Amino acid sequence: MIRVKLHWLWRAVDQDGYILDEILQTRRNTEAARRLLTRLLKRQGVRPARMITDKLKFYRAARRQMCLSIRHLSHKGLNNRAENSHLPLRKREHIMQKFRSPGGCQRFVSVFSAIRNLSGTSASITTAFSRHIHRIRAFAQWSSATALSV
């Protein structure tokens, strides 16, 4: 809820937990679901083999409107990866004492997700040494990206 108006954060997450796209919208209907799917397909460039969502009926309607032949699964436990990816953002939102405006929230979410994708580890990395190497590479990328912007 931002300034007494309810907003929905639509999020697409891949099988490794990386956040692909996020949109903050005031509606939770077919048009909003279609907007997320359209943005996601444009950014990714390729169509996914399957799409796992919660049981919201608007995903099915949006997929039908767009004539997508993607295998669509909606089951209570299948979208746990996407639901759990909200937790770090919600913790940060609590620390910041909520968001003041929708635009500020959208900007924060996109930057927060990009940094989280860079520094977070994949589910396929299992050893401590691999995680350590991944973290060193992430900090090196972050250093080079911030040095270019100065």
Rank of each mutant, 00 (worst) to 15 (best):
M1H: 14
R3A: 15
V4P: 04
H7D: 06
L9D: 05
L9Q: 02
R11N: 05
D16S: 09
G17W: 00
Y18V: 01
I19W: 08
I19A: 14
D21M: 03
D21A: 11
E22A: 15
I23C: 04
L24W: 00
L24Y: 01
Q25M: 15
Q25V: 05
T26N: 01
R28G: 00
R28F: 05
N29F: 02
T30K: 14
E31A: 13
E31V: 11
A33C: 15
A33V: 04
R34G: 13
L36A: 07
L36G: 02
R39V: 05
G45E: 02
V46D: 08
R47S: 10
P48C: 03
M51E: 00
I52Y: 07
K55I: 04
Y59G: 03
A61T: 12
A61I: 04
A62T: 03
R63F: 03
R63H: 05
M66V: 07
L68R: 04
S69D: 11
R71G: 10
H72T: 00
L73A: 08
K76G: 02
N84I: 02
S85L: 00
P88A: 08
L89M: 13
R90W: 10
I95H: 13
I95S: 11
Q97I: 06
Q97W: 11
Q97Y: 11
K98A: 14
R100W: 01
S101R: 03
S101N: 09
S101P: 01
S101K: 05
G103W: 02
C105R: 03
R107Q: 10
F108H: 15
F108T: 00
V109I: 14
V109A: 07
V111I: 13
F112M: 04
S113T: 01
A114D: 10
I115G: 11
N117D: 03
S119T: 13
S122E: 03
S124C: 06
I125R: 01
T126R: 15
S130A: 15
R131V: 02
R131G: 12
H132D: 07
I133E: 15
I133K: 13
H134S: 03
R135M: 12
R135W: 08
R135Q: 12
R135Y: 10
R135C: 10
R137W: 07
A138C: 07
F139P: 02
Q141G: 01
W142K: 05
S143N: 12
T146Q: 06
T146N: 12
L148H: 11
L148N: 07
L148E: 09
S149E: 06
V150K: 14
